[in-house]
Amino acid sequence: MRRDLVIKALSNPLALVGFVIILGILVVATLAPYIAPYDPNAIDVKAILLEPSALHYMGTDGLGRDVFSRMLYGARISLLVGIVAVGIATAIGVVLGALAGYYRGWIDVVIMRMVDVMLSIPTFFLILAVIAFLTPSIWNIMIVIGLTSWMGVTRLVRAEFLSLREREFVMASQTLGAKDRRLIFKHLLPNSLTPIIVSSVLGVASAVLIESGLSFLGLGVQAPQASWGNILTDGKEYIQFAWWLSLFPGLAILITVLGYNLLGEGLRDALDPRSANKNK
């Protein structure tokens, strides 16, 4: 992206709020080992289920672990899973969408039928089924979420390519004898970048939600590794005695997802002239 586009995007108030939230999480996650007052996995039997206080900002859990420290490390998981999963999905989606949109014909038909098939399998069932046959771990989660969420990007890139191919500057370049590779990487892909970025940012939001849901169900990030989802599993267990175990991780997920959504929508408004005109 060019610098003026970045400035334009961040002058959109929604995008700016989203950007600040995500930046905050990034900083917290990076600095987790330095900020965390306790070892996130240190069990302390003398400090079980303590209310939030000056010693434990967010209280302690059923094993006496410091919730604040676990939340900080949970931010790392959430960030990592979201970005890697979406990276995988975007890579697959861009390649397949570009192939379908550029070459059309039978390649397009085959790829689009694959998309239709994947879209007709209830996503959460698909993810859970794969995890049932593998073992739940953070790496498997990222791969599975990535492999089950590339369909939207594929459709998007294909549509962009189909419409860009008919544009004069692409035709002109083709007439001048540009090779496929040059057309794709020099003209089509750079001009499809905005919608790809917007959909990736929104994709991170849903990946974060899926990861936390899986971890909550006990099929995602496994204890003792902390994730916001599996802190909430404890929250459910102790819901009658320890509100802090439910409140903080849920809020963290809410704010994170909100941040990615605001950033994504804001970028769309700022960078895509069509949608900006429509909504204003």
């Binding site: 939001a205 939600l209 936390s212 849901g213 909550f216 909430l232 929250g235 459910k236 819901i239 009658q240 509100w243 439910s246 991780p249 849920g250 997920i253 809410l254 704010i255 997802v257 909100l258 959504n261 605001l262």
Partner: peptide, 22 residues
């Protein structure tokens, strides 16, 4: 709408269970 998109359903479920049931 934005909050509805971002709120984890299982978390809201927990809160509502706590509020209306406990």
């Amino acid at each position: 709408v934005f909050i509805g998109f971002a709120i984890p359903g299982f978390w809201l479920a927990l809160l509502l269970m706590y509020w209306t049931g406990v």
